[in-house]
C-alpha cells in the first residue's frame, strides 16, 4: 500500500491522540512520510477527540483525511460520525466493550475488539487505545511489529519507563486477539 490514512476517534482521555502519535512514530521509524493532525478544540478537555494519521511512501499533500482507509472508533458517537466516510474496502476497528451497535456496511471489514475489557483484564486498564492499535497493526499489511521498541521509546519518556512494558503488553493483547 502506497498510503494509509487512519482516523482515530473517541472520548477525550482515552488516549486517542497518543495512539495516533504512536502510529506516526511507527511510520517514521519505518522510513515513511507521516502526518499527524489532532482535533484541538474544546474536545481536548473532554468530549469527542479525534486524530488523523497518514503514513505514505510519497510526500503527503493534505493532512486532512476525508475518507480514511482505517477508522479506529472508541465510542459510539465516533463510530456514528465517521463510519460512512471510510473508503469502500476499508477497515473499521471498534471497541466492542463500549460500542454495542452494528456498523451497517457490507463494503468494509469490521473488527470488533473488546479492548476496554481486555485492557482491564491484562492489568493495563488505561491502555485500551493501545490494544486497538495492536489489532490495527496486525490487520494492516503496511504496518508490522518491527521496530516496536524503538517506536515506544519515542512516545514513552525515559522518566516513565514503567509505562514502556505496560504499553507493550497492551499492544500484544491487541495483536494476538483473534476475531
Amino acid at each position: 500500500m502506497a498510503s494509509n490514512s487512519i482516523l482515530l476517534a473517541g472520548f477525550g482521555g482515552q488516549g486517542i491522540l497518543f495512539a495516533g502519535k504512536f502510529l506516526a512514530y511507527k511510520g517514521m521509524v519505518a522510513g515513511k512520510e507521516v502526518s499527524w493532525l489532532p482535533s484541538y478544540g474544546p474536545e481536548m478537555r473532554g468530549g469527542t477527540a479525534s486524530c488523523s494519521v497518514i503514513l505514505s511512501d510519497t510526500p503527503i499533500g493534505s493532512p486532512i483525511i476525508m475518507h480514511p482507509d482505517c477508522l479506529v472508533a472508541m465510542n459510539l458517537p465516533s463510530l456514528e460520525k465517521y463510519k460512512g466516510s471510510v473508503v469502500p474496502g476499508g477497515k473499521i476497528f471498534l471497541d466492542s466493550t463500549l460500542i454495542d451497535a452494528e456498523v451497517g456496511r457490507d463494503d468494509v471489514q469490521v473488527f470488533a475488539i473488546p479492548a476496554t475489557r481486555m485492557a482491564l483484564e491484562a492489568g493495563v486498564s488505561t491502555l485500551a487505545n493501545m490494544v486497538m492499535v495492536g489489532k490495527l497493526i496486525r490487520e494492516c499489511d503496511d504496518l508490522s511489529f518491527d521496530g516496536l521498541d524503538e517506536t515506544l521509546h519515542h512516545v514513552v519518556s525515559a522518566r516513565r519507563a514503567a509505562l514502556f512494558d505496560l504499553n507493550k503488553t497492551a499492544l500484544n493483547e491487541g495483536y494476538n486477539y483473534e476475531g
Binding site: 499527524w36 493532525l37 489532532p38
Partner: peptide, 10 residues
C-alpha cells in the same frame, strides 16, 4: 494557521 501549527510531521 492552526492546522500547520498543530500537526506533526517528521
Amino acid at each position: 494557521d492552526g492546522t500547520i501549527g498543530q500537526m506533526m510531521e517528521a
